[in-house]
Measured scan of single mutants.
Amino acid sequence: TTIEWNGTKITVDNPQKAKELAKKIAKKLGLTVKVHGNTITIE
């Protein structure tokens, strides 16, 4: 699972952990999480 935001890509083996990490990042930055299959985008 890949997390993408602002040109940065982070690959996380565990999809559940990836989703939790994305939510934490999005919350800190005041952004939203969008899931597209194996890609999680923070916008």
Rank of each mutant, 00 (worst) to 15 (best):
K27G: 08
T32F: 07
T11E: 09
T1V: 14
G37T: 02
A26W: 04
W5C: 10
E20A: 15
L31G: 14
N6F: 14
E43D: 09
E20F: 10
E43S: 13
A18Q: 01
T8I: 15
N38G: 06
P15I: 11
H36L: 10
K24F: 13
G30W: 02
L31Y: 07
G7C: 06
V35L: 08
Q16S: 10
I25F: 04
T41F: 15
L29Q: 05
T32D: 05
I25K: 00
G37Q: 06
Q16R: 15
P15W: 14
K28H: 11
K24M: 12
V35E: 05
T41I: 14
K17I: 11
K19C: 15
T41D: 02
T11I: 14
I42Y: 02
L21S: 00
T39R: 11
E4S: 10
I25E: 00
I3A: 06
V35M: 09
T11Q: 10
D13G: 12
W5P: 03
I40C: 03
V33H: 01
V33A: 05
T32R: 07
I10T: 02
D13T: 13
K24E: 11
A22V: 03
K19D: 04
I3S: 06
A22N: 00
A18S: 02
I25Y: 02
A26Q: 05
A26D: 01
N6K: 09
P15V: 10
K24T: 07
I10S: 01
T11N: 07
E43I: 14
K17F: 11
L31V: 09
K17M: 11
W5R: 04
G37I: 03
K23W: 14
K9Y: 11
K34R: 13
N14E: 04
N38K: 04
I10E: 01
A18I: 04
V12A: 04
K23A: 12
T41P: 00
K34F: 08
K19F: 15
V35S: 04
K9M: 10
G37V: 03
K19H: 14
V12H: 02
E4H: 13
G7A: 06
I40K: 00
K27Q: 14
E4C: 08
K9W: 09
T39H: 09
T2C: 10
L29F: 15
P15Q: 06
K27M: 12
V33R: 00
A26H: 04
I42P: 01
G7N: 08
N38L: 07
L29K: 05
I3Q: 06
D13F: 12
T41V: 13
I42M: 07
T8W: 15
D13N: 13
T32G: 05
L31K: 04
A22E: 00
A26G: 05
P15E: 09
N38A: 07
L31W: 11
A26N: 03
K19A: 11
G7Y: 10
T32L: 09
G30C: 06
W5Q: 03
N6S: 08
K27Y: 07
K17Y: 13
T32S: 11
W5D: 03
I42R: 00
T2P: 06
K17D: 08
V35C: 07
I10W: 12
T39I: 13
L29I: 04
N6V: 08
K28V: 10
K27L: 14
K34M: 08
A18E: 00
I25H: 01
Q16I: 13
I10Q: 01
I42F: 14
K24G: 04
L31H: 05
G7T: 09
L29T: 12
N14V: 03
G30Y: 02
K17C: 15
G30E: 02
I3R: 02
A26R: 14
A22R: 01
V12P: 01
P15C: 11
A18P: 01
K34A: 07
T41Y: 15
K24N: 07
H36N: 14
I42K: 01
E4R: 08
I10P: 00
K9T: 12
K23I: 13
E20C: 01
K24V: 09
E4I: 15
G30P: 01
E20R: 15
A18N: 00
E20D: 10
I42E: 00
K19W: 15
P15Y: 14
T1D: 05
I40D: 00
T1P: 07
L29D: 03
K24I: 13
I3P: 06
K9R: 12
T2A: 08
K17V: 11
K24P: 00
L29E: 04
K34T: 12
G37M: 05
P15A: 11
K34I: 12
I42L: 15
L21D: 01
N14L: 04
K9V: 13
K17W: 12
K19R: 12
K23Q: 13
I10A: 01
D13S: 15
I42C: 02
T8D: 05
L29A: 05
T39D: 03
D13H: 13
G30K: 05
I25Q: 00
T1R: 01
K24H: 12
N38F: 05
T1I: 15
K28Y: 12
N14M: 04
P15T: 05
A22M: 02
K27R: 10
D13L: 14
K28N: 07
A18R: 02
L21V: 06
V12G: 01
A26E: 04
K27A: 12
I40P: 00
G7Q: 08
D13V: 11
K23T: 11
Q16K: 15
T39C: 08
A26Y: 04
K27C: 08
K19G: 04
K28F: 11
A22G: 03
V12D: 00
E43N: 08
V33M: 11
K34V: 11
I25D: 00
L21E: 02
V33Y: 09
E4Q: 11
K24A: 12
P15D: 05
T2I: 14
L31I: 07
G37S: 03
H36T: 10
K28E: 13
T8Q: 12
G30T: 02
E43M: 15
T41N: 04
V12I: 13
P15F: 15
T41M: 11
K23V: 12
D13W: 15
N14W: 05
K9H: 10
N14T: 12
A18C: 09
K19S: 07
V33K: 00
T2L: 10
